[in-house]
Design a protein around this nucleic acid. Structure first.
Length: 839
DNA sequence: AGCACGCCGACT
DNA sequence: GTCGGCGTGCTC
């Protein structure tokens, strides 16, 4: 039977699968429609990765979002070039999640795809060259120079060369001109080759060949022959010793790791000979990059107190989808998490647990690994791309049903989440600032859980005001753990007045007498000390004592931070660095001095004040390497370090019994930061770092250096009075319209020309005033940092009514306004960024 | 975002 | 005369 188009019924079956809307990893607010070639119409589906041509030159990996039959009206769709998968790499739930994120955070779905897929799952297209088949050197009108000849010769041998190959063939860096010239002379063709970036880890293994394995007589004969070749005999014996194939024949198929032979000091050439003679055979096995670890059988025993909390959590989750677990440091949240995770897994659900990046290398991972073994995937930003692809595939195949990860792990291909935990939910690092998508992983995780009909638990000792507010207004469930686990006692807080000590001349190298004496005593008792200062480098800036000159970044509107260890001044915004000048470039004076306090300088001061102590520093500069953070932690944990100086990093997960003194160098720096959230952050940071002090039998001491000890917030921190602090701050938040009472959307305008940036921002502000939504607009104001990377920055803040669809309406309107502005020639090169819930 | 097409200055 | 600067328009 034939249909109208002359195809038979079988073909009609896939007539609904002519076209596909494809997500392309480019910042364009659209999906693109491609034609599905006949030969994979039956296989293709949502979430499959495909190769498509995009534009004239680019070949990209796309993800199918929709399959349909509607041909695009305005253009001829290009065909999909290839199908990369025989299964969906991304599931339909994820596509919905991506679409939600693009809409909510005002970015392109391609941006979300870029953030979501590990780059190993996106293909790279590599430019390669081949000989032009129509080229004949003898008849060519163009003469070739030596280099071109060499390249053609190499090409004739190899068939094709990548640009890198060309570089190594010619031994020079700039091969582009040569390739260009050869293309013009029609000697070569350039083509794009797509290649899979992910490469599985393979292991060489050795096993006995089939002939010898099945025929024992043959083996005996072989040993007879080998008696004159002791080295080969040794190798074979080693194999039989390690793999007793005659007693357990099934072992032979897996064989033995090749490296075993070399590690045993056996001859590699004898092994080679045995392989050549067909006695042994070598094969490759794809192995996991992650070590196998068996889950422990240990029972988690909860204290009576924890047990009660657990019951309450389950009760609350009957009614509410999200729950705030407000547990002070050391209250035993981890055991409760473990119990809940185990139960969720036992019921067949998947579990995702998010941690801020700096907390992910610590105690918690080790503890969970102990319980869940290698059935738990870990997704960390310091993992290589191959490792990430393996976690992705592990989730996809169902091998990993529990993942512990940083904010980007919300993008893993879960299909049946039952529980999502966000620990340390107040941490600002859950918010991605740059690039798009500018998402808040905690909020996105709640959305993700909702898509899966899963439950979310937010855990923190110092909840974000948003979450606490949601708990108090009954939107979230709420369970508090306000007792420390075991016998650990709450630390004693002492405020130490910097100004008083300064007057009495007791302030030495920025340390008050109280703090110095406390450190001294701790050292005497062989105890450890933590010093917290949220500023890395030696000092925030250098200044000329005679004329007041301060070195500033050439590209940004900030002073350069002085790093003493390499005598450099660095910009923490763009990475610009410069040597410290010998004399002041403004007045020639040589009295240049470092002003202010950074971790490096504190480290130095401590070595001067306590020459017998072993001091270490933990900040971005000392933990850049993959294991830098872990190494420092181990050093400190093993007692090789007496005093640890650090930034935010030390407020997380350090769980050491010997810490009895915690010093906060400059509490005012946190408190007087110009931001409505400064108080909230100060409370969180000081409480968190204080939580590191004194855990078991001994009470810890927390010494806070400040110039304004009378501030009420200190007394609330000291009393652990989160609630009253919250209530008081919330009064201001409500009066002055700040979150969580309003929704904030920040619009950032950037341009290399100050005037253009300002005018664009003003224009946009004007246009925004007419959006028919109840709102308060602030700005445009020069950014906190007026210039970053040579781009001037202006910000406008919109405060919106949270309820109803005002935010959605507003976002849509802004997008239209931005489009309108950008079609104007003056503002074409202006960048507008929308940051939803910027925090 | 890239990348091609297109129109005006300093170089062989 | 050309190489190349980056303004602007488009990508299924």
């Amino acid at each position: 039977m034939e249909d109208l188009f002359g195809g038979n019924i079988e073909e009609k079956e896939d007539s609904s699968r002519f076209f596909a809307d494809v997500i392309i990893p480019v910042p364009i607010p659209k999906m693109f429609t491609y034609k599905i070639p006949k030969n994979f119409r039956d296989e293709i589906g949502i979430g499959f990765r495909v190769i498509v041509q995009f534009g004239k030159k680019k070949v990209l990996t796309g993800v199918i979002a929709k399959v349909h039959q509607k041909p695009p009206a305005a253009y001829e769709a290009k065909p999909i070039l290839d199908l990369l998968d025989n299964h969906a790499t991304v599931n339909p739930l994820q596509i919905r999640f991506w679409a939600w994120m693009a809409e909510y955070y005002c970015c392109n779905i391609g941006d979300v795809m870029n953030a979501a897929l590990p780059s190993g799952l996106k293909l790279s297209s590599e430019s390669k060259i081949q000989v032009n088949p129509t080229f004949d050197q003898d008849t060519s009108p163009y003469p070739l120079d030596d280099r071109e000849e060499t390249l053609l010769q190499a090409l004739a041998n190899k068939g094709e060369l990548s640009y890198e190959d060309c570089e190594s063939v010619l031994g020079i860096k700039s091969i582009h001109p040569i390739i260009k010239s050869l293309v013009i002379k029609e000697a070569i063709l350039v083509f794009e080759q797509v290649k899979e970036k992910y490469s599985p880890k393979v292991e060489s293994r050795i096993r006995l060949s089939k002939a010898f394995f099945t025929d024992k007589k043959k083996l005996e004969k072989l040993f007879h022959e080998l008696s004159s070749k002791p080295k080969q005999e040794e190798v074979l014996l080693k194999y039989l010793q390690e793999v007793p194939v005659y007693r357990q024949p099934e072992l032979n198929s897996r064989g033995l790791e090749k490296s075993v032979f070399s590690e045993a000091g056996l001859s590699a050439s004898s092994l080679k000979t045995l392989i050549k003679n067909g006695v042994l055979e070598e094969y490759k096995l794809i192995i996991s990059r992650f070590q196998e670890a068996a889950p422990s059988k240990e029972e988690i025993t909860l204290s009576e107190y924890q047990e009660k909390a657990l019951v309450k959590i389950k009760e609350e989750l009957q009614e509410k989808n999200t729950l705030l677990l407000h547990g002070i440091t050391g209250s035993g949240k981890t055991e409760i998490y473990i119990t809940l995770i185990k139960e969720a897994l036992a019921s067949g659900s998947q579990v995702l647990m998010l941690l801020p990046e700096i907390a992910l290398t610590t105690h918690m991972v080790g503890r969970l690994r102990q319980v869940f073994g290698s059935s738990m995937g870990v997704y960390h930003s310091k993992y290589s791309d191959n490792e990430r692809v393996e976690v992705w595939n592990g989730v996809l195949s169902g091998k990993l049903s529990f993942v512990l990860g940083v904010r980007s792990s919300i993008f893993l291909p879960f299909d049946s989440l039952g529980l999502v935990i966000v620990d340390e939910e107040h941490e600002s690092s859950f918010k991605q600032f740059d690039p798009a998508p500018r998402f808040q992983a905690r909020d996105a995780a709640i959305m993700l859980a909702w898509l899966h009909q899963a439950k979310t638990i937010l855990g923190s000792a110092t909840p974000s005001f948003e979450s606490f507010y949601n708990a108090r207004t009954q939107k979230y469930g709420y369970v508090a753990l306000d007792r420390r686990y075991g016998e650990a006692q709450l630390p004693e807080y002492i405020l130490s007045d910097i100004l008083v000590d300064k007057k009495k001349n007791l302030l030495k190298l920025d340390f008050t007498r109280l703090l110095r004496e406390s450190i001294q005593e701790a050292l005497k008792n062989q105890e450890q000390v933590l010093i917290f200062q949220n500023r890395r480098g030696y000092s925030p800036y250098i200044s000329c004592e005679d004329c007041g000159w301060i070195p500033e970044c050439e590209h940004c509107d900030v002073s350069l931070t002085y790093h003493q260890f390499n005598e450099e001044m660095r910009c923490h915004y763009c990475g610009f660095k410069e040597k410290v000048p010998k004399t002041c470039p403004a007045c020639g004076s040589n009295k240049l001095s470092a002003v202010g306090l950074g971790t490096e300088r504190i480290e130095e001061s401590l070595s001067l004040l306590f020459p017998e102590a072993r001091v270490a520093r933990m900040d971005l500069d000392t933990t850049r390497s993959k294991f830098g953070y872990q190494r420092l932690l181990e050093e400190f944990g093993s007692g090789n370090v007496d005093i640890l100086v650090g930034t935010q990093m030390i407020t997380k997960g350090l769980d050491f019994d010997r810490v009895t003194v915690v010093g906060v160098m400059d509490a005012d720096r946190i408190l007087f930061f110009p931001d409505f959230r400064a108080g909230e952050r100060a409370f969180q940071q000081i409480t968190q770092v204080a939580g590191r002090a004194g855990r078991r039998e001994k009470k810890g001491k927390v010494i806070i250096q400040t110039r304004k000890p009378e501030q009420q917030i200190f007394h609330q921190i000291i009393q652990g009075d989160y609630k009253n602090f919250y209530l008081q701050e919330m009064g201001d938040r409500q009066r002055f319209f700040y979150p969580p009472f309003v929704k904030i959307i920040k619009i950032v305008t950037r341009h290399k020309d100050y005037k253009v940036a300002e005018r664009a921002a003003r224009n946009l502000h004007h246009l925004m005033e007419d959006i028919p939504v109840k709102k308060i607009l602030l700005g445009p104001e020069k950014g906190l940092i007026g210039k970053i990377k040579n781009q001037f920055i202006f910000e406008t803040i919109a405060k919106l009514d949270k309820s109803g669809n005002a935010p959605a309406q507003f976002k849509q309107a802004i997008n239209e306004l931005i489009n309108e502005l950008q079609s104007h020639k003056d503002f074409r090169s202006v960048r507008f960024l929308i940051d939803v819930d910027p925090y």
